[in-house]
Design a protein around this nucleic acid. Structure first.
Lengths: 231, 231
DNA sequence: CCTGACATTTTTGTTGCCAATAATATCGGC
DNA sequence: GCCGATATTATTGGCAACAAAAATGTCAGG
């Protein structure tokens, strides 16, 4: 159906290719904050038309990953530490909301799922398997979010999260960090399992506060760059 | 410099004209949820090119006011009561965050400003001047937001708020509503004035919870449509 | 009278070209 | 030789025509 004779993608698909590609490049650090994104370059790089690149920029701007300056194109948005803290503060209350709802709605099967994640996290930290810990961390957030059933809040968090991945990178997998975050994660699980909304919310908020503290600490002493996004 | 000979606007200005116009139309109720927005119609209505309309649609989609269905155009987004509640729940925790920060940062001049707003609100409710009450309500939110100095949270709230104006309309200025919300508003002011972050946050969250309750009540018994957006 | 295929029309999506704008380089004056 | 004005270039913004898709209307067949 699609012609695709010379490798040039077309259709709405083309926009997604650019959006996903640029997003991945920003999140992985290939594109640095402040870097200019020239339409013609991306047109060639992704083998799409300029219109698709343009449309993709609109999406990425809405996502907060890039900013557009009139007549000067788009550049990767630079997020200051102060702004990152503000973003995390918002995330904190939103994650708290989700955790509270999760505590109210969790059923037996979901509870078992959480228990397994908690056990896995403890084992991973004990054995120093940071990669597994990072993976379980993402899984925990996803599971709690699913139990909480607050798609609006979850959506906001996703957007906020992507804006500060670069800051999170700096503190992820920093030596000793898993030892700090593990009990915080377990506290969230416990709160949900106990059907204690207030406790789950408090635990979630405290966890994000701990991330903020770590980020502010690391602001002056930039840590090593790693690939997993554990917090 | 701008030609503007035949009334057709051009430049980046054109997109903004459409965005503002459509947004105002949606918020004021001229455009009903689910209503289709045909590009050609808006092109004629606003005297802009189709490209500007298209670009404006991208912005409005990001704002959550309209939704785009591939090859079927955009329509005014229909927000269910359930989703409105979810949005309000997010707003609740975010407003709580701002109120808490405001309590921590408020200075004497700002405190006096809040006191005046509070007094004005009491007087307005006592005399039944709903319009002034509505105006002061907006002013209170803006002032607290300014004191809280959380632009990220404030921005999220603005976006969330615009998505449910139609629902808020239904309950605004409903008889007896100001009597319910006045003490809630005063509690927020008191918490901030007392530099009591926890109290201010609780007050802000309780206020939004009250809005949720009113909205759920009014879901089955649709109220009268009014123009001011008090909550 | 209903049903399904086909043609028509409406509407959106895309492309290529031209204009406007800002950054850069060049040139003349002091 | 340095500074400011002007020309050049690179890049984005906008427009109009074109192509594709979906919805609608029409008509023949049962």
């Amino acid at each position: 159906m699609e012609s695709e004779e010379n490798g040039v993608r077309r259709g709405a698909e083309a926009k997604e290719v650019v959006v996903d590609g640029v997003r991945a490049a920003i999140l992985s650090g290939e594109l640095s904050p402040g870097q200019r994104l020239v339409e013609a370059e991306l047109t060639e790089l992704f083998a799409v038309t300029r219109g698709s690149v343009r449309s993709a920029f609109a999406d990425l701007t809405a996502e907060g990953l890039v900013e557009r300056i009139p007549n000067r194109g788009v550049r990767v948005r630079r997020v200051s530490v102060e702004e990152a803290v503000e973003i995390l503060e918002c995330r904190g209350v939103l994650e708290g909301l989700i955790a509270a709802r999760a505590a109210m709605r969790v059923n037996d099967a979901q509870a078992e799922q959480l228990r397994q994640i908690g056990d896995g996290m403890q084992a991973a930290v004990a054995s120093g398997d940071v990669l597994t810990y990072s993976r379980l961390n993402s899984q925990l957030h996803a599971t709690v979010s699913e139990i909480g059933a607050q798609p609006v809040a979850a959506d906001l968090i996703t957007r906020l999260r992507s804006q500060i991945v670069r800051h999170q990178f700096q503190l992820s997998l920093r030596p000793g960090r898993p030892q700090v975050s593990l009990p915080e994660h377990l506290a969230i699980i416990e709160g949900v399992l106990a059907h204690d909304a207030a406790r789950a919310e408090q635990a979630a908020r405290r966890h994000v506060e701990s991330v903020i503290a770590a980020l502010q600490q690391g602001a002056e002493a930039p840590g090593t760059l790693v690939q997993a996004a554990a917090d």
